[in-house]
């Protein structure tokens, strides 16, 4: 017969430990719940500010279909976000293209090949790279990449998709590297041992065993990098040229959703149509980054299940 489990409240003596336990339990519960409260609160706030516009001035056809973002044009302001969406998408796309090979390479090197000190130093350096403020990246884009792009490609302006994409790629790379490395580390060592015992080289083991086993985690790493790119504001504002454009080449200047909000919000009257339209952009951003993060999370869960 199974013994009855002791009731852990009744048998407890109310000494100091008991109170500390209760108190700490309460504090961490508040901490955990507050995350939910904040995320719902932010979503509610953004929605509330943008909501009137959704019912009044908003036309989905214009918002998603027209590149004309002319909120200050009198008497007929237009709110076409297509160019802004295209700007964000093109910059983020290029960022991912440039960051993925480097990040995967770095993660594979750190997780599978580097040993001892090299590995530790590299990990710290990659994390340091993630700590560089975005305005510094924007500064690099503005003052170093800009003249470089003008000189190399012989184009009139160096603040464009290429510049912002590369800067954003550099910013996303450390996050992708760190998460991808975690994904590779999570692959049980028994698999590597099995592969090597059969005569596979380290590289063969990496390609044929470790990467397939870690593919969900690697996918999550890429998605979180994309999420980082979507939400980044300052560096993109500084490096992209900030002009409304449907880009046809990497040398076109563009304007990103985030940069638009940052640049215009301070100059609008609270509650005006323009103000509300900016919050609608915010809702769009929120929805996209939320979906990306959710997708990444589902991929990681896939790893645990499989």
């Amino acid at each position: 017969m199974a013994p009855t489990p002791p009731d852990d409240h009744a048998s407890d003596r109310r000494n100091l430990d008991w109170y500390v336990d209760r108190g700490m339990r309460w504090i961490v519960t508040v901490g955990g719940v507050s995350a939910i409260v904040f995320i719902i609160g932010i979503f509610a706030f953004v929605t509330r500010e943008g909501f009137p516009f959704l019912f009044d001035g908003f036309e989905a056809g214009e918002f998603f279909g027209s590149p004309a973002w002319r909120p200050t044009s009198e008497p007929n302001p237009t709110y076409g976000a297509l160019a802004l969406i295209a700007g964000t998408a093109s910059v983020t796309g290029l960022a991912v293209l440039s960051a993925v090979p480097f990040s995967l390479g770095a993660a594979i090197y750190i997780a599978e090949f580097a040993t001892g000190r090299t590995r530790e130093v590299l990990k710290v350096l990659v994390e340091l790279l993630a700590a560089i403020p975005s305005v510094v990246w924007g500064f690099i884009g503005l003052s170093m990449m800009n003249p470089l792009i003008i000189a190399i490609f012989d184009v009139p302006v160096g603040l464009n998709v290429l510049n912002a994409g590369l800067i954003l790629g550099l910013m996303a790379a450390p996050i992708m590297t760190t998460i991808a490395e975690d994904a590779l580390k999570a692959v049980p060592d028994a698999y590597r041992e099995a592969g090597e015992a059969m005569g596979a080289t380290r590289w063969q083991v990496t390609m044929r065993v470790v990467l397939p086993a870690a593919k969900n985690g690697l996918m999550a790493a890429v998605l979180l990098g994309v999420g980082r790119g979507f939400g980044e504001t300052m560096a993109v504002l500084m490096a992209s040229g900030h002009s409304i454009n449907l880009p046809t080449s990497p040398f076109d200047s563009v304007r990103a959703l985030t940069a638009t909000i940052a640049a215009e919000l301070g100059e609008t009257a609270v509650g005006s149509e323009h103000y509300q339209a900016l919050f609608t952009l915010g809702m769009l951003l929120f929805a996209v980054t939320f979906s990306i993060n959710l997708a990444a999370d589902l991929f990681v869960r896939g790893v645990r299940r499989g």
């Binding site: 028994a190 698999y191 090597e196 015992a197 059969m198 005569g199 397939p212 086993a213």
Partner: peptide, 20 residues
Amino acid sequence: LVQVRKQIGMVFQRPNPLPL
């Protein structure tokens, strides 16, 4: 080393099939 390991198979304590 590759030839050595080709000719000498190894079975481990815990079964370790690859995730394939």
